[in-house]
Amino acid sequence: HYKKMRKEFRFNAKQHKIPKYEISVNTGQPKAYTVETKMDNRSAFGNALTDIIQHNSLKKSNTPIAVFDCDLAGSVKTDKIKKEYSEVFFESGIQEHHTATCSGAASVNGVVSFFADFGVFGIDETYNQQRLNDINGTNLKVVTTHVGMDVGEDGKTHQCIDYIGTLRNLFGFKIIIPADPNQTDKAVRYATANYGNFLIGVGRSKTPVISDENNKPFFGEDYNFEYGKMDILRNGEYPLFTHGAMVPYALEVQKILKEKDVSLKVINVSCPVAVDSKELNSLIDTDVIFTYEDHNKYTGIGSLIADKLLESGEKCPGIVKFGADKYAYSGKPAEVFKLMEIDPESVAEKILKSIK
Rank of each mutant, 00 (worst) to 15 (best):
R234Q: 08
N268P: 11
M230T: 12
V253P: 04
K260G: 00
Y227A: 05
G228L: 13
Y238Q: 03
A250G: 05
P239G: 08
A250S: 12
I256W: 04
D261T: 12
R234E: 07
N268H: 14
K258I: 00
M246E: 08
E252V: 03
R234K: 15
I267L: 06
Q254F: 09
G236A: 01
F241L: 03
I232P: 00
M230I: 10
F241Q: 13
P248T: 05
G244R: 11
A245N: 12
M230Q: 11
Q254V: 04
A245H: 15
A245Y: 15
F241N: 13
E237I: 07
K265V: 01
E259H: 11
S263E: 04
N235K: 08
E259N: 14
I232Y: 01
K255R: 14
E252Q: 14
L240Y: 04
L251P: 00
L251E: 08
H243P: 00
K265P: 06
V247W: 04
L240A: 04
G236K: 01
K258R: 11
D231P: 02
Y238R: 07
K258V: 00
L240G: 11
V247I: 07
P239E: 03
K260N: 03
I256K: 09
I232W: 01
G228F: 14
K255G: 14
D261F: 08
L240I: 02
Y227D: 09
I232H: 06
K255H: 13
V247P: 09
R234Y: 02
K229Q: 13
M230C: 14
P239T: 06
L257V: 08
Q254H: 15
P239C: 13
V266K: 04
M230N: 05
K258Y: 03
V266P: 14
V266R: 04
I267M: 12
I256M: 02
S263N: 12
Y249W: 11
H243Y: 15
P248R: 04
E252L: 10
V247Y: 11
V262N: 05
L233G: 02
H243N: 15
V262R: 02
D231Y: 10
Y238C: 00
G236C: 03
L251S: 11
A250L: 10
L264T: 06
L251A: 12
M246Q: 14
F241I: 02
D261P: 03
T242I: 07
E259S: 13
K265A: 02
Y238G: 00
I267N: 08
L257G: 05
G236M: 00
V262I: 13
V262C: 05
Y249T: 10
L233H: 04
G244V: 07
N235R: 00
L257W: 08
V262K: 01
K229N: 11
M230D: 06
A250D: 09
V266S: 09
V266M: 06
T242Y: 07
E237F: 01
N268D: 09
K229G: 13
G236W: 02
K255W: 00
G244Y: 13
G236S: 02
A250K: 10
K255D: 13
K255M: 03
L264R: 01
D231E: 10
E252H: 10
S263M: 05
V266C: 11
